[in-house]
Structure formats: structure tokens, C-alpha cells
Write a protein that binds this DNA or RNA. Sequence first.
DNA 1: CGGTCGGTTGAAACTGATCAACAAGGGTGG
DNA 2: CCACCCTTGTTGATCAGTTTCAACCGACCG
Lengths: 237, 237
Amino acid sequence: MAQMIAETAAPSFGRAFPAALARPLRDAPAPAAPTLDALARTVALARDATLFAEGDDADFVYVVVSGTIRIHKTLPDGRRQITGFLGAGDFLGLSAGESHVYSAEAVTAASVKRIDRSRFEAVAATDAALQRQLMAFTSSELLAAQDQMLLLGRKTARERLCSFLLALAEKARRRGEGGERIALPMSRTDIADHLGLTLETVSRTVTQLKTSGLIRLLDGQRVQLADIAGLRAIAQG
Amino acid sequence: MAQMIAETAAPSFGRAFPAALARPLRDAPAPAAPTLDALARTVALARDATLFAEGDDADFVYVVVSGTIRIHKTLPDGRRQITGFLGAGDFLGLSAGESHVYSAEAVTAASVKRIDRSRFEAVAATDAALQRQLMAFTSSELLAAQDQMLLLGRKTARERLCSFLLALAEKARRRGEGGERIALPMSRTDIADHLGLTLETVSRTVTQLKTSGLIRLLDGQRVQLADIAGLRAIAQG
DNA sequence: CGGTCGGTTGAAACTGATCAACAAGGGTGG
DNA sequence: CCACCCTTGTTGATCAGTTTCAACCGACCG
């Protein structure tokens, strides 16, 4: 249970909103940053630190500044499903009523902006640009969730891995970070719990993709997608 | 390929928005109905009729008036994942960019309101109540999607069935229709494609639940949840 | 230098898929 | 009006992909 959450004064909100999120519907709105900035407090998270757990009071809303966060649901007997990995600019803890419906933990050392929930809602009620941003984010999460349901319900282990790698690459590309070499900061267990597999199956399948020449494992938790067309072909069946 | 889509003049928009959707965030807003009503056209769908298919131009947005609609994604080789069943008051075709990212078909004879997309967006841009409604709907869909990911990634066939039945009951309850006896208008194949199983496994598992006395199959595509506590216990592992 | 953690690889077991046969309706046409 | 057919659902037997159990390896850390 690594906690180690450090708070610091909030520097600037700007970086939290990458270009992709700043223009939700072909508008060119001035970012909602300034207003929220005053309410935000930056929180530093150590690797594996818990930001909040399923069932906790939903007193805050968060925006990822840097690092990777995993959100997941867990069954009473411990079976876990990671519903998403979030990065810079993504929101957390939005949809909750009284309490959070999923847990959030840091995959890597990370930094998030924390905003008082009621104040956030007050700003959101009057700030049209923020509303658009929230809607755009929630919609794109729903889109991703639908893809993930197809993956979990109907794809084989190999197809899941390829789809996952391509999705990571696509997300990195949208952030403007190259495309062929991607960071893979999460453990085999995390990947397994995201793809509905066991860690052994993930390990075996990665080895298989490596042997087939579709990917190459680089140092520093990075992967090179050596044959993107091949990966796409497999990902789609 | 049953098409049979009939159009009629739009009567009233009101019924399309049940109470649950009309108060997204503890507000009591006057429904956005009147403005949209002028833009809406009611479309009647025969059972199994296609409303739109994945890849079609997203020229319209829809609201379900009556009946059940299924939305799904399909892989090139025909594997299908039904990402949701929609009923009265639910929106369809919202999140698309240029084209739809999922297909929508009628499970039962159904009726939907069709609204020109660009006009809808124009209204949505200025109507705060509609914005709240859209946000509330999209958020609740995302919530449901996260539950479904847990189901597809980590639950057994039996747990999936129980979860599905309870989710249907819950949705019916929120609509104000009893709770213990629920309609099950979709085929075994549809249920299988929603739960990531085969129709045979669904059939066997239903039989098993019936034999265990947890459910009773009634006539008219209805099911009685005879032991809700028992179903809950199984659904959660 | 021992211990732990994350990852890899192997062998056996199991859940759900696949292939197959059959029953019950429901609609259609003779 | 009935026979037929087509669709939907049920049940059985076998098969396969993934899980489970287990051993092992290397890296990192105390």
C-alpha cells in the first residue's frame, strides 16, 4: 500500500489540457484554465499510490498533469478489471454521485490537479468552454469503452494485445509523441487486468508477437511496433 | 434485412424524456423539449429494422420514444458485440464525428425521434438544459460501460447472466415499471452477443438458473426474478 | 548475498466454444 | 385447414483456448 501523496502549490493549469482536448467541437475556445486554476492544487503521486478507491466519498475531481493513472473496478473476491489508463489532460472522478465507482492508482510516478468537487461543479455550471471540454472527454471515453467491450467480448488474446498496443500508439500520436515506439509503463498484471486475460497469457502472447517480428521490446519499458499493418490486420481479426 | 421504416408527423416530445433524465444534477430544469420538438420527426421501426449502420454518415441524432434498440459493433468476420440496449428516453448517434461508429437496430417494433444533426448541435450549443441532459445521459452510459467491461473481462457465464438480468430490472425500476418481472424482448443470440458468450451457453445457463429456482420464465418474453438476493450474490462473485 | 518482485516458460485442467441433432412454434401456401 | 418450412431455442458430445498450478530466471534492493 504505497501512499506517499505529496501536495504542492498549484503552478499553472495550462499544461493539463493538451491541444486535442482544447477544441472539442471545432470551436477554438479560450481554455477554461484560469478559473479552475485558482481552485486546483497539484498532488504528486508515487508509483502505485492510491488516489482514491471505489466507494470513497467523491469530494474531489482530478485532472492528470503527468504520468499514467489506472482506473479499475474490483469484485469482492479480488478479480480486477482495469477500465482505462489515463494520461495528461484526462479527467478523473467526474461521473460519481456521492462516492466513487472505481479506484484510481498511479501506474508511474504522476502528478494530478485536485479540485474541490462542489466548486468544480459551480464553475462547470457557468463555463461553457469547460462544459464542452467535459462533454468531449466523456464522449471520447465512451467511444473507447465501446471499443474495449468489443475487445473483451469477442477478441482472442492475440487480437487483444495487438489492439491494445495500437490504441496506446494512437493515444501517443494524438499527444504528438511519435508513433512507432511507445511507452509501456504498466506491468503484465495491469495489462492482463485491462484485457481480461491472465498475466501468463499476456507474457506468452507478447513473446509470440516478438517472435513473429511484429514488435520489438526496447529498454526502458518501451516497445517498437515493427509491423503496424500486420498488427492492424490481427487486431481486426 | 427487414427495413420498413415509416415516418409520421412528430406529435409531442415530452414522453421521450423520463423523469430520471430530466434531472441530471439535482436541478429541476424545464425540459428542453419544446425547441427540439420542432426539429424532430417520428420514425417507426419494424422489428429488426436497421436505423443506421457503422460507417454510415452521421446526419441525424435520435431519441428513443418506445421499444428497444440494440447498438453494436461488428468485426470484419462477423463477430458482434452489442454494447447496449436502449429504451425510451435514450439518445443514439451522439458521439459520432462524420460517421457512426456503431450500428443501431430495432429489437422490437420501436419508435424514435429523428433530429437533423447540425440543427441539433445548434440547439445544444445554446440550450443549457439540453446540455445537462446530454451530459447526464453520456455519463450514465459510461458508467454502464464500465460495469460491462468488468462483466466481459472478469465474470463467468453464470455471473454475466445474473448481472444482466439485474441490470435490466434496475433499468425497468428506474422507469417506474415494477421490478421483479421484467421483459426480455431480445433473442438468445442478442443476449449472447451482449455478454460475450455463445447462444448455447446463454441457453444452458438460463436453464440452470431456472432449475436452481432463481428465475422463472413467464410467457410473453418475460422473466420473473424469483430470488433477487440470490441473483445478486452470484452476480458479484 | 539472500530475498523479493516481475517476467517467462511448461504441463495439466477447465470453462465455454463448436459441431450436431432435435423440438416447438409460427407463418405461408397449397 | 393442414402440411410444411423456417426460425428460435434446447440439449448433448467433443474440442480448444485460456487458465491454473508450478518451476525458474534475472534484476534490483536491503
